[in-house]
């Protein structure tokens, strides 16, 4: 199947007089663990909530697994697992009571799998939710999501505020699910280290716009540092889009997106790390203020797709 798991076209959401998301056009291919990265307020949560059918667009279109999500379309929402940082658990419930609640509200619920997951995590069905550590609560919340057997998991900062061991356990539980069930995942995160290890698709948002969306492997291959002495910096090679520029008293260094092989010998070339690439986009987003134009970058051949 090649239907995108999430597809948006000119998607926008306004809260009163403020835009939570504007002009968002995006297509997440199937079979990916996609990372959604961007500063707070970029519109990540707004986008994810709309994907989960919890919020309706002000304008524009969103399709999830090929269909328009709505609170009335139960058959679509059953195929989507959504989890945000609130981790909606009933604190006074025992784990088994949470599971029975899940079973009663989800026709695709797989009780055996839910029990196997918490068993592997060393959590007892008799444990009360409010007696569990924060990490264990996060694991139970994710288990509730996984037991629905969703085709798409939409996770809003699933590992935020967890200690390093708990976040590792949670992400491993998630990766095991991807390995065994082939579940599609779209998750937002501020932890750039996680992006490189668990994700294979990257979406960067700033000011409610998508500034980069591509396979992770290609993201690294298509960006380079270009350095030269500022006094006689040569013209930029063809096919180069500057994302971020840093200058010293002598040198200028661009982090650039390249679309053609660099034949030019006059620029010093270095390969950036994934973190450096993401930071360059985020820094540009911050510096360009709240009203960016689609091509506010120096571009020799087209803009940023």
């Amino acid at each position: 199947m090649t239907t995108p798991v999430i597809e948006t076209d000119g998607l926008a959401k306004r809260f009163g007089r403020k835009w939570g998301l504007r002009d968002c056009t995006l297509s997440v291919p199937p079979g990916k663990v996609a990372a959604l990265v961007g500063p707070n307020g970029a519109g990540k949560s707004t986008l994810l909530r709309m994907a989960a059918g919890l919020s309706r667009p002000t304008s524009g279109l969103i399709r999830v697994l090929g269909r328009v999500p709505s609170a009335n379309d139960a058959s679509l929402l059953q195929r989507v697992g959504y989890l945000d940082q609130e981790r909606p658990l009933y604190r006074g419930f025992r784990v088994e009571e949470m599971f029975r609640f899940g079973e009663g509200t989800n026709p695709r619920w797989n009780m055996a799998r839910a029990q196997a997951y918490v068993d592997q995590l060393g959590i007892s069905l008799r444990d009360r939710v409010n007696g569990l550590s924060g990490g264990q609560q996060a694991q139970v919340a994710l288990t509730m999501c996984l037991a629905k057997q969703p085709e798409l998991l939409v996770l809003d900062e699933p590992a935020a505020e967890l200690d390093p061991v708990a976040r590792e356990d949670l992400l491993r539980l998630l990766m095991r699910e991807v390995a065994e069930q082939g579940t599609n995942v779209v998750l937002s995160t501020h932890a750039l280290g996680d992006v490189g290890s668990i994700c294979d698709y990257l979406i960067i948002m700033t000011h409610s716009r998508v500034v980069l969306a591509d396979d992770l492997e290609f993201v690294v291959e298509s960006h380079r540092f270009l350095s030269a002495t500022s006094s006689n910096a040569p013209a930029l090679p063809e096919g180069v889009t500057v994302i971020d520029t840093r200058t010293s008293s002598r040198d200028v260094t661009h982090l650039a997106r390249i679309t053609l092989p660099l034949g030019d010998e006059t620029w010093q070339v270095a390969v950036p790390t994934l973190d450096e690439i993401i930071m360059a986009y985020l820094r540009r987003g911050r510096d360009s203020g709240s009203s960016p134009s689609p091509d506010d970058s120096t571009t020799a051949n087209g803009g940023v797709s």
Binding site: L171, R172, M175, A179, S197
Partner: peptide, 15 residues
């Protein structure tokens, strides 16, 4: 692949 995903936190596609 399942075992590797149990060892290290990594995307199964990467394995």
């Amino acid at each position: 692949v399942r075992e590797v995903v149990g060892q290290v936190t990594i995307n199964p596609n990467t394995v």
